[in-house]
Every structure is written in structure tokens, then in C-alpha cells.
């Protein structure tokens, strides 16, 4: 009996690993294809697509696509812009949304349920429907700069950051997470005389690692993949992000190898960010049931 049980266990384990490996392969193959293709000349890249050679670094491989990509577009500038805008937006958003969620969950004030409902309702409004009104708004907004009061936010970093400083999904994630925190912790802190700001900073946020990681990753992906908004508010190349930069490579005769090289380069920050936060991200998914 024991042998049969052990055999079953081994078989189940083997099947489980087989399935996991297959899933991993499905997810990793596009990345492998991208990187491998970035090393091949266009003609070979296209002719290899019909076979397994598409996933293998074989044939005439080299780094010329990377060289040409840098000649075609200021890749470093675009990556910097995206990382800067994304990083700053993520930080601001985590702060603003966690504070908002804190107020919704722990502070007693009239109408908070209604306000939260309105915020959550914004989740069903596609950005495309508000893009034009938002464009008209930011094109007229004032700003205090080095030369005094200026009007219009176009062609700046702030126009790519501030409209995204808060969003319904991130507030929702924080609200859900904060609701599961033991109320006794908050009450005990109040009894000890802690202010709400102290409770936010010293009690709640130190416990919010998983949701911070989840919200950061989700926001990072949204911001890093921004296309429509920077397209319409940034005309100056100096502020363009990576996704608008991708269009540089779609000419009448598309250079697929250069596109793959560019994609490989701009994927690095995303992978690095995810790898840094993946443990907390997985812990958050396990504890909240929220899927990324």
C-alpha cells in the first residue's frame, strides 16, 4: 500500500511539474523569440519564423540590430523618460492612494461610502473617453515655474505624471488590504495617544508591504506602457517615453530585427522591477486573492 501511495505521489508530482514547465515555456517563449530575433538579420528572422529556429540563436547572429536601433532613435533618452515618469508616478500614487484608503477604512466621516463608490465607479470609464477633455484641461492649466506663472502643461514631465497620481484600482487594492488588518492594532494605538498620521506611518504602512508591491507592479506596468496620453500631450522628443518611441521603428520597410532589439532593451526595466518585487507580489496575491 505504502509503495502504491508513494508511486501516486511521485506521479502527481511529475504531472504537476510537467504542467508547470509547459506553462512556463508558454510564457517564456515570446521573450526568447524576442531576444533571439533581435540578434538576427531581417531576412533570416522572417524565414526562421516558420520553424523552431525562431527560438534558437543560430545562423548569422550579431548585435547589429542594437547598433541600428540606437542610430534610429534616442533609445536611452526614451528609457530614461519612461523610468523617470513611471518611477515618480508609482511613488506618488502609492502615497496618495494609501492615504485615501486609510481615510476610507479607518476614519469616520459622513459620506465616505458614497465617495468610495464614486471612485470605484471610475474603474468602468475607459481613459479614451476622457482623454480629449483632459488634454484641453492640461493645455490651459497654470504652473509656477522658474520664470513665474506659466500656462499649459504640454511637453513636460508633470503632464505625464500628475494626472496619474491616483486611480480607483490602487485605492481599491489598499482599501481591501487595510480592511483585513486587525482593528485592535489601530484602537490600541489610539488608546496610546498616537495621531492618525503616526498610525498611518508607524502601524499601517509597515504592514502593507504585499499590497504596496502589488499596487506598485500594476501601476508600473500601466505607466510604462503608456501610449495614447504621452502621444497627445508631448510633442517634444525630449520627453517622449518608450512606447511612443516604438513607432520610430515602423517605417514603410519595417526593420523587424531592430524592433526586437528595441523591445528587448525596453523590457529590461520591467523585468528588473518585477524580479525585485515578485516575492511581495506573490505574497499579496496569496493573501488578498487579487489577480494581476
Amino acid at each position: 500500500m505504502a509503495t502504491i501511495s508513494q508511486d501516486n505521489h511521485g506521479l502527481r508530482l511529475a504531472v504537476r511539474y510537467l504542467v508547470l514547465v509547459l506553462v512556463a515555456v508558454i510564457f517564456i517563449f515570446p521573450l526568447v523569440f524576442m531576444v533571439v530575433s533581435s540578434l538576427k538579420p531581417d531576412q533570416q528572422l522572417l524565414s526562421d519564423t516558420g520553424s523552431l529556429r525562431a527560438f534558437l540563436p543560430v545562423g548569422d547572429i550579431g548585435l547589429s540590430n542594437y547598433t541600428h536601433a540606437f542610430q534610429r532613435a534616442p533609445v536611452g533618452l526614451f528609457v530614461f523618460n519612461s523610468v523617470f515618469v513611471t518611477g515618480l508616478t508609482v511613488l506618488i500614487c502609492l502615497l496618495v492612494c494609501s492615504l485615501a484608503a486609510f481615510a476610507f477604512v479607518f476614519l469616520e466621516w459622513r459620506g465616505r461610502a458614497v465617495v468610495l463608490s464614486i471612485i470605484l465607479a471610475t474603474l468602468i470609464v475607459p481613459f479614451e473617453t476622457i482623454a480629449i477633455p483632459l488634454l484641453l484641461l492640461v493645455s490651459k492649466l497654470p504652473w509656477i515655474g522658474f520664470s513665474g506663472i506659466e500656462h499649459g502643461w504640454l511637453n513636460t514631465y508633470r503632464v505625464q505624471i500628475l494626472p496619474w497620481a491616483a486611480d480607483g484600482l490602487t485605492i481599491f487594492l489598499f482599501v481591501q488590504y487595510f480592511k483585513d488588518l486587525p482593528r485592535e492594532l489601530i484602537e490600541a494605538s489610539r488608546v496610546e495617544g498616537a495621531t492618525w498620521l503616526q498610525i498611518y506611518l508607524k502601524v499601517v504602512m509597515p504592514l502593507a508591504g504585499p499590497v504596496l508591491a502589488t499596487a506598485a507592479i500594476l501601476k508600473f506596468l500601466v505607466m510604462y506602457n503608456q501610449y495614447l496620453w504621452p502621444l497627445i500631450v508631448v510633442q517634444d522628443e525630449a520627453y517622449r517615453p518608450v512606447m511612443v518611441g516604438l513607432q520610430y521603428f515602423f517605417q514603410l520597410n519595417t526593420a523587424w530585427g531592430e524592433i526586437m532589439a528595441y523591445l528587448s532593451l525596453i523590457t529590461i526595466p520591467v523585468l528588473a522591477f518585477y524580479l525585485v518585487l515578485q516575492r511581495a507580489f506573490i505574497a499579496s496575491i496569496a493573501s488578498t486573492g487579487v489577480k494581476g
Binding site: 480629449i132 488634454l135 484641453l136 493645455s139 499649459g152 502621444l231 497627445i232 500631450v233 510633442q235 515602423f250
Partner: peptide
């Protein structure tokens, strides 16, 4: 000159016109 990628150009001009830019 400010250059734009062709695939994004028309949308940029329309947005620029809307914003008076």
C-alpha cells in the same frame, strides 16, 4: 523641426490642434 514617428503623427497633429498648439 520637431519630428514624430509616422504612425503617431496624425493623432499628434489632431491633439495639437485641439490644444491650440
Amino acid at each position: 523641426v520637431q519630428s514624430f514617428p509616422a504612425g503617431a503623427y496624425n493623432d499628434t497633429v489632431i491633439a495639437g490642434a485641439l490644444a491650440g498648439n
